[in-house]
């Protein structure tokens, strides 16, 4: 099995006619994802790649094509509204790839999505992939392989490293989720841990964190409370200086809080295998599962 998305998921792409949106939509279709509709206000009626209908609004896409997952490539100035539109149209999952959305917009968007019962993933994230079933995001499909490990990460490319190792070692992934690098993410590590715990096919979880915030500490608290699966973790940013934003809007050590050392300590104490190099994530998981 998998979590969040699978072969049944029906995707509507918001911003499908933009350069990023159209490129990645093609990649998702090529991977085998069911992209059933696109939305670009003003371009309703056209066909994307001669087969995917484009609508002016998300609610039309939901009504006419039965879309239940939105993938959002709308630029930062319009992204908050786009996510709310998806939530209001009733999709169960909105995956927001867009980077650079103001944090206070996200505070509002997260509250709005909760009020509509829509799960938001991201923003500023690579999306989610359930290998062999559906790819809803910008990750390279070919490094993934259907398997038994759940992957959760605040990073994009660093996740591909870990996924690549799991694939080479034959463990594969049930689902790999990028929760994004922003300070106000729609979905947290804790949410993903809970979903993986319910998935009978997931045998272990890889959690890739980084400096800033307390999401890793919150994950540690859940794992310490009899979490049923083994967890391997790497935290990026041990060498990051305090007060500097390290690329991701959320990756900042503020007021001495949010350091890699604190996070690693919390996770270790919760029973997580914390590795100090991303190169050995796969190996560590193999050792746990075979031992």
């Amino acid at each position: 099995m998998s979590i969040m998305v699978d072969g049944e998921s029906r995707i509507v792409v918001q911003g499908i006619t933009g350069s990023e949106g159209s490129f990645h939509t093609s990649q998702c279709i090529e991977y085998g994802t069911q992209v059933v509709a696109g939305v670009t206000p003003g371009k309703g009626g056209m066909l994307f790649e001669e087969k995917v209908p484009v609508f002016n609004t998300v609610s039309e896409a939901v009504e006419k094509e039965g879309a239940d997952v939105a993938m959002i490539f709308v630029p930062p100035a319009f992204a908050a509204d786009a996510v709310k539109e998806a939530a209001d149209a009733g999709v169960r999952l909105a995956v927001c790839i867009t980077e650079g959305i103001p944090a206070l917009d996200m505070v509002e968007v997260v509250a709005y999505c909760k009020s509509r019962g829509t799960r938001l993933l991201g923003p500023n994230c690579p999306g989610v992939i359930s290998p062999g079933k559906a790819k809803v995001g910008i990750m390279p499909g070919f490094v993934h392989q259907e398997g038994s490990i759940g992957v959760i990460s605040r990073s994009g490319t660093l996740t591909y490293e870990a996924v690549d190792q799991l694939t080479r070692l034959g463990l594969g992934q049930t689902t790999s989720i990028g929760i994004g690098g922003d300070p106000i993410p729609g979905t947290s590590f804790v949410d993903c841990l809970e979903m993986f715990a319910e998935d009978p096919d997931t045998k272990g979880v890889v959690l890739i964190g980084e400096i800033g915030g307390t999401a890793e500490e919150e994950a540690a608290a859940v794992i310490a409370d009899d979490y049923p699966l083994p967890v391997v973790s790497f935290i990026a940013g041990s060498t990051a200086p305090p007060g500097k934003r390290m690329g991701h809007a959320g990756a900042i050590i503020a007021g001495g809080k949010g350091t890699a050392a604190e996070k690693m300590k919390a996770l270790s104490e919760a029973g997580v295998t914390v590795v100090d190099s991303p190169s050995v994530i796969g190996q560590a998981m193999t050792e746990i599962l075979s031992g």
Binding site: R154, L158, I211, T239, G247, A251
Partner: peptide, 21 residues
């Protein structure tokens, strides 16, 4: 490096190897 997480991890790996970014 491409990607913030990988960039931080690369810095960390340099430190582990005895260097400094």
């Amino acid at each position: 490096v491409n990607g913030a997480g990988l960039a931080m991890a690369t810095m960390d790996e340099i430190l582990l190897a005895g260097g400094s970014p």
